[in-house]
Design a binder for these strands. Structure first.
Lengths: 230, 230
DNA sequence: TCTGCTTTGCGTTATTATGACACAAAGTAA
DNA sequence: TTACTTTGTGTCATAATAACGCAAAGCAGA
């Protein structure tokens, strides 16, 4: 390695995570309550600094493992945030990512840096430290657009799910109501999902069909022009 | 500032730029021929390291100014590249950006780090050093999708332009041929552009109308479902 | 100025996609 | 059985759009 290569002082590199979960027909985000300054006792996104030998994906997995006790989530790079004063401790560039999780599959635990880890519905967030409000807004925006051209629902639902459950997920993320019958038609035309043949038992009324995601989905087919019901 | 804050060794942070230009009905990219190792005499994207007090946008402008003598381009963050061995000199994370330029407005000059600066048509690129081939591919992909929902043509064309010129730009970037009359209808329906009232003189046949971009464009209107002609 | 050729502007039409809506089947509870 | 809710399926009028026709504008050559 070139010895002169690291002689200038460069900004620190961090990663912040927007972890989305979906339960009780509500989209939520994982927030940490900080033990230490800055923003002591305030809520922030989970995050951490990039170590010399780590890839971005590895940092994300390390953060999720040590701070909230989960790993191997769907993960996507979001954006880099570079405002010079975004961290009062010094110059830190954050490469934000977002993750999707089915919360019922995991137990969340607070790591040693946090007092508490908690799910917050996306429309009832507390004020966030650093520029994490900005990061969150951008992550939600990304999720909203991504779900229209890529089958992201995979990650937020159980292995099998019903058509009404899938629709509720879309309505929740997009913040709109959708006509039941048109939604069904578009999802099926896109070959987004496949019938499993079994039905969800135990529900009060007609037992809905269970579907699974079509892993052979051709991405070219997948462009959902979903519009809100009047 | 917290004195312990910078005690660990962190990766260097760089920026690489994919500068797109459009001339002679061809989409091109600016490449540098490197004077020094690594990849001496090889072609790479222009790039540079982030200094302590700079924002990402400032690095991009500095690189464009010092390495190719241009500035104030349309600039967008693309993606961060973190493969541990992507730079033989050491661990470098690159936050790639892409820029759009009308090459006829600028004279390109090689900076002191480069032997040469040259436009290459995007379908005739030489092998690129580092992981710049990957970065370029992703930038082109992004441009292709961006142009369908955001009026990026602004930056690549002259102040005024004709309908056939705009269509040629779309055909070139998307790599398809489009029906003349359907293209016109969609562009006009989207209120993408406005008639200036004058015509392009000097052309061999019928003189086409000159348009300008509609700066009051409502982004909600702008969703071009352009499809290739059979 | 007349003819042929190319490019541009402005239509039309058949087909498809889509939003709005009706109705029957399946299940539960009384 | 009846009443009620939820789910599955189909219809229909309208909007979007791909394919295509045709005339006007300009130039070149006779």
């Amino acid at each position: 390695m070139n010895p002169e290569f690291h002689t200038y002082k460069n900004p620190s590199l961090a990663v912040d995570l927007v972890v989305f979960g979906y339960h009780n027909q509500s989209l939520s985000v994982l927030l940490l309550n900080r033990k230490d300054e800055p923003f002591k006792n305030g809520w922030t996104l989970p995050g951490g600094f990039l170590q010399m030998e780590e890839t971005l994906q590895q940092v994300c997995n390390r953060i999720m493992h040590t701070k909230i006790g989960i790993e191997n989530l769907y993960l996507e790079q979001l954006y880099s945030f570079d405002e010079p004063n975004r961290d009062p401790r010094g110059r830190v560039i954050s490469i934000a990512h977002y993750a999707l999780i089915n919360p019922e599959r995991f137990e969340i635990v607070a790591g040693k840096m946090a007092n508490d880890v908690q799910w917050f519905p996306v429309n009832q967030l507390p004020a966030l430290g650093f520029d994490h409000g900005l990061i969150f807004d951008q992550a939600l925006q990304r999720l909203k657009s991504k779900i229209l051209y890529y089958p992201v629902g995979f990650e937020l639902l159980d292995e099998t799910f019903t058509m009404p459950e899938l629709q509720a997920l879309y309505e929740c993320i997009l913040g709109i109501t959708i006509d039941r019958r048109n939604f069904r038609r578009k999802i099926l035309d896109a070959e987004y999902i496949l019938l499993t043949g079994s039905k969800r038992e135990g529900s009060k009324n007609r037992h809905p069909d269970l579907y699974k995601f079509n892993k052979a989905l051709k991405q070219s087919n997948f462009q959902l022009n979903i519009s809100a019901q009047q």
